[in-house]
Design a protein around this nucleic acid. Structure first.
Ligand code: MN
Length: 796
DNA sequence: TAAAGCCACTCAT
DNA sequence: CTAGTGGCTTTA
């Protein structure tokens, strides 16, 4: 449920950003969201109790995406229900049951299409499903933890402790728990929205300046939250007003009692305290101390016996069992894991063990492991940050102590109780292997992020490494009279107004992936699929109205026709219209170029975190060396309109918008080309973002290609790369001395006319010499395109 | 008219 | 084991 309307009111401080911006950081993930969304894909199977692991695949796809962008994922799963939530919970369960029943009836009546929506509503994410995902996470050594109660609190705790650097979740409750950086609305390309606690003061739709965490929490609880329904007619706005006015709950409630229109229920104040404390002192699993702790320690005089609403405490042994996913968080029974479902079966024998030995995590052994493990992050520290920050040092010390302090705690497991709580532990691994697994789980779960928030100073002015506010509005200056949300909404949901469209390019990758059915995919319907430029410069409005030259470029290799409007229907369907002031303003070309780069970027990125089999199949299908198509995902008929990856790539190559872009470029007089590239190099907008992501992309590709022994996928990739290189060399006659590959890169970018950009690389005058340094800045962008070509070029 | 409240819909392929 | 969104009505 979260806090109704909270995200809406925080719109003005939402930063549109990208996962790349979090490279090097650890992001905690509310795993339930991924599981649930993945489960939608197999709603039918789940309702009919058919085996299906699409939800695992979906979640792993997202895990791969994070990793691809240099982010370290840390998945957090929900645990037991809090008593205060059981009411809403049973309500939901009831609705799910109804839908399932209805769905099954329709299904039996062969009304499948009508049954499906009902099945979707009946989706229930079970601990067993979580366990299946956890099994996959273990294989890839991904960090994770199962929270004792709400994942929200666990995530906020991990962030507080510096184990993670940000939180990925759709739930606004995170902010009430005190999250500092919340990431929401992650899409399939890595685009997302960041909400920072530190920006609250600049929120424009609600004055939050001066609000402490306690004030904010007070407002949230008053407005209605998971743990306490609001007083009738009190929502976020009203709560906000009262908090501003009276600050203290007691005062607020007192005042409300005098208002005729509000009816304060009996005992509301006490309920409020409980709800507030449920946020503040939520039980979480501390991976450092290896036991349950309170999110915020209880104050003096508070006794947990008096706070049943916080849920029950459990022994460290059980807490660890739950945290690592071995035990059902609600029943505390062993979760049976279906070995047949997980692709790699356990090599160990499934010998039966006595229950007691399940928890014989011998301190003498484990502490040793923990101690070693704790030091490992230090060794992995970035060479540029040899000294841990004070806070990290503190945490490391804490770790060390915790390890040792763990001795008396874990050496006193209540075996009798443990045994009674786990009646049917039949599918247990050997005690030793389980102990080992848990040690490594705890080691991983407690690993601190080595990310250093204060970015290192750079020599030059390419500054602003912090996630840029791509999306417009300064929190301090209102640039537009209208409230921005409405503008944004209109632009997104309805057709973009013509004046918003600076460049017509071909489809976005998302469209390509989603609209595979469209037979006319090669053609471009510019009115419905515009690539709208990111507007960072604020020049777009003037540009839109200024009479720019219109280049209409055919996609095939014929000369471009300038200032000639081709009849829409008369000419080839694959026509890309580019409206750009290329002749006058190099900035326009830069923008166009950036759109292009973004496009390639997206396509390549999307490719990169497909399942390896799908990548391999696509490369196989694309490789010119492959004469006999093998039976594979790619050659199999499309099921349910699932696009073949190779088709996507082919379509992209056939659209040849890059050719059209560079034809545009090549028609410019060389001094304008120089200006264009110079402008490109000094661009601070999306080119900047491309550059920021490069290091991660580079190393990912590099390390992939370096793996030995070479996998078939690598070999195919190499083939693709070689093919593209050799054709470049033939057509371009080799490389330059000082920068051997620069020429070929340019060639890769444009097969049409390399001369123009080649001229640029050779300074002709003193004036242009200075531009060479600017051009060096462009090199990363070229390299990027090179990388993009690695994956996508070979369709010729 | 703004705020609260209610309900149906979305999620993936 | 969860949420948000958008559209609509109700309310003061
Ligand atoms: Mn929540």
């Amino acid at each position: 449920m979260g806090i109704n309307g909270l995200l809406g009111v925080l719109k003005s401080i939402q930063k549109h950003t990208h996962l790349r911006q979090f490279a090097g950081q650890t992001i905690g993930v509310d795993a339930y969201g991924w599981l649930h969304r993945g489960a939608v894909a197999c709603a039918m199977e789940l309702a009919l109790d058919k085996p299906c692991t699409k939800y695992v695949e979906y979640a792993m796809h997202r895990v791969r995406m994070l990793i691809y962008f240099g982010v370290t994922p840390y998945l957090v799963f929900d645990g037991d229900n809090l008593p205060s939530k059981t009411a809403t919970e049973v309500g939901r369960a009831k609705r799910r049951e109804e839908s399932k029943k209805k769905g099954l009836e329709l299904y039996k009546a062969s009304k499948i299409s009508q049954a499906y929506p009902e099945f979707q509503k009946s989706i229930d994410v079970t601990p067993h499903m979580a366990r299946q995902l956890i099994e996959e996470l273990k294989k890839l050594d991904i960090q994770y933890v199962v929270a004792p109660y709400e994942a929200d609190a666990q995530l906020a705790y991990l962030e507080k402790k510096g184990i993670i650097n940000a939180i990925l979740s759709e739930d606004s409750d995170l902010l009430v728990y005190g999250a500092k950086r919340l990431i929401t609305k992650l899409d399939q390309h890595g685009d997302c929205i960041e909400i920072s606690r530190s920006d609250f003061a600049s929120c424009r739709d609600m004055t939050l300046a001066g609000f402490t965490d306690a004030d904010f929490r007070l407002m949230a609880v008053l407005s209605g939250c998971d743990y306490l329904a609001s007083i009738n007619k009190i929502g976020l706005k009203t709560a906000h007003t009262y908090v501003r006015k009276y600050k203290r709950v007691e005062k607020i409630v007192h005042m409300l009692q005098f208002e005729k229109k509000f009816v304060v229920p009996n005992g509301y104040l006490e309920c409020f305290y409980e709800a507030e404390r449920t946020f503040l002192h939520h039980r979480v699993f501390c991976p450092l101390e290896k036991k349950l702790v309170f999110f915020t320690e209880l104050e003096d005089g508070m006794k947990e016996e008096d706070m049943p609403y916080l849920g029950k405490d459990v022994s460290p042994a059980i807490a660890i069992g739950v945290a690592c996913g071995d035990l059902d968080p609600m029943t505390k029974n062993q979760i049976a894991v279906n070995v047949a479902i997980s692709s790699r079966s356990m090599p160990e024998l499934h010998r039966r063990r006595t229950v007691a030995s399940v928890y014989d995590l011998k301190p003498s052994k484990s502490i040793d492991n923990f101690f070693k493990a704790k030091r490992q992050p230090l060794a992995e520290l970035d060479p540029n940050s040899l000294t841990p920050s004070p806070s990290q040092q503190r945490l490391l010390n804490l770790n060390r102590n915790a390890s040792w302090e763990a001795r008396p705690i874990s050496s006193a497991p209540q075996l009798g109780r443990t045994a009674s709580i786990m009646p049917g532990a039949s599918q247990v691994h050997t005690g030793q292997s389980q102990s080992r697994e848990r040690s490594s789980f705890l080691e991983r779960a407690a690993t601190l992020s080595t990310f250093q928030p204060p970015k290192r100073m750079r020599l030059c002015s390419d500054v602003d490494v912090s996630p840029s506010r791509k999306d417009d509005r300064s929190p301090f200056f209102v640039t537009k009279p209208e409230p921005s949300p409405s503008i944004r909404k209109r632009g997104k949901t309805k057709k973009a107004r013509l004046s918003d469209i600076e460049v017509f390019s071909d489809d976005s990758v998302a469209d390509i992936f989603q609209d595979m059915q469209d037979p006319e995919i090669g053609s471009v319907d510019t009115s419905t699929k515009p690539a709208v430029l990111p507007d960072t410069t604020g020049r777009s409005t003037s540009r839109a109205s200024s009479p720019g030259a219109t280049l209409v470029t055919e996609v095939c290799d014929t000369p471009i026709r300038q200032k000639i409007q081709l009849p829409q229907s008369g000419i080839s369907p694959s026509t890309t219209a580019i409206s750009v002031n290329a002749a006058d303003d190099p900035g326009e070309f830069r923008d166009l170029f950036e759109v292009h780069v973004e496009h390639l970027n997206n396509l390549r990125n999307t490719f990169s975190y497909q399942r390896p089999e799908r990548q391999a199949a696509a490369l196989r299908a694309l490789s010119p060396a492959t004469s006999t198509p093998q039976l594979s995902e790619e050659t199999a008929p499309n099921q349910d309109g699932v696009p073949r990856l190779s088709q996507v790539v082919r379509r992209h190559a056939q659209s040849q918008h890059s050719a059209s872009l560079h034809k545009t470029f090549s028609t410019l007089p060389s001094h304008q080309q120089a200006a264009a590239l110079k402008s490109l190099g000094s661009s601070q907008s999306s080119t900047e973002k491309v550059k920021l992501g490069l290091a991660a992309l580079d190393s990912a590709t590099h390390s992939f290609m370096q793996q030995r022994p070479m996998t078939p996928l690598q070999q195919l990739g190499q083939q693709v790369l070689d093919t593209s290189r050799s054709s470049d060399c033939i057509s371009h006659g080799g490389s330059r001395g000082d920068r051997p590959r620069a020429g070929s890169r340019v060639e890769q970018v444009s097969k049409v006319n390399v001369q123009g950009s080649e001229d640029l690389l050779v300074p002709k005058s003193e004036d242009e010499r200075s531009e060479v340094s600017e051009i060096e800045d462009v090199e990363p962008v070229r390299r990027h395109i090179d990388l993009a070509r690695f994956a996508f070029t070979a369709s010729a």
